[in-house]
Amino acid sequence: MSTDQQTGRPAGGPATPHVAHRRQPPPSADELRARIPGWGADLDHADRPSFPKLDWQADRYGAHWDYPAQQPGGEGRERSIEHAQLTPVFGTAQPLHGVSGAVRRLAYARYSEGRLAHWMLLIAGDRIDAWGAHARSFLSGRPDQPFTETGVVTEVTHHGLASRLRSSRTDTRHQVLDPVVVAGPWVAAAVGAFLGGRALVRAVRS
């Protein structure tokens, strides 16, 4: 198909953005209204909910305070050093603990959110937390089970193969890396333990 057929532009003349007007006007409002339920209901920019971006909210969404009461128990709660004070409300879901907690606390106490070190330490804290939790899980009544916790059984129950073959999707190419992300640290730990053990045995023997 020639470009001209594809666009419906009259052959010969200059193409659209080289001239002042589109060669292909959009469908008319009537046409669109007939085809699409609600077309143009929010045509007026000034009547859209988030217009303008900064817009004084007189009703305060129902708040009945000028400044909220302080949630108790915030002593020692980690916070971004870009905050002038602890926020009046905060989450208490998983308090800092152990080695990962120390790494994360350092990230918060030392570096602003503008510093890469802040985020890299938090990411390091995440990995330490995960390894520690896996190790501890084997001492608990409920060890981690990579098979059930990854839900891979759905590869069978929810047509894993067919779902991947149906579209020409490219994400399958890197999905093969997912098991590496899951199992990689385990393999590394096993190799490390083996090498460490071997070195120990050799040291003892010699």
Binding site: S50, K53, L54, D55, W56, Q57, R60, Y61, G62, A63, W65, D66, Y67, P68, G74, R77, E78, R79, S80, E82, H83, L86, T87, P88, V89, F90, G91, Y108, E113
Partner: peptide, 29 residues
């Protein structure tokens, strides 16, 4: 999660509330 009365909530930026997320200023609760 938002408070309704901080600088940002007062102006409608409720996804950028300053009173609910001690861990970061760059994102709300």
């Amino acid at each position: 999660i938002f408070c309704g009365t901080c600088w940002f909530c007062s102006r409608g930026l409720v996804s950028n509330c300053h009173n609910v997320n001690p861990n970061a200023t760059a994102v709300g609760g």
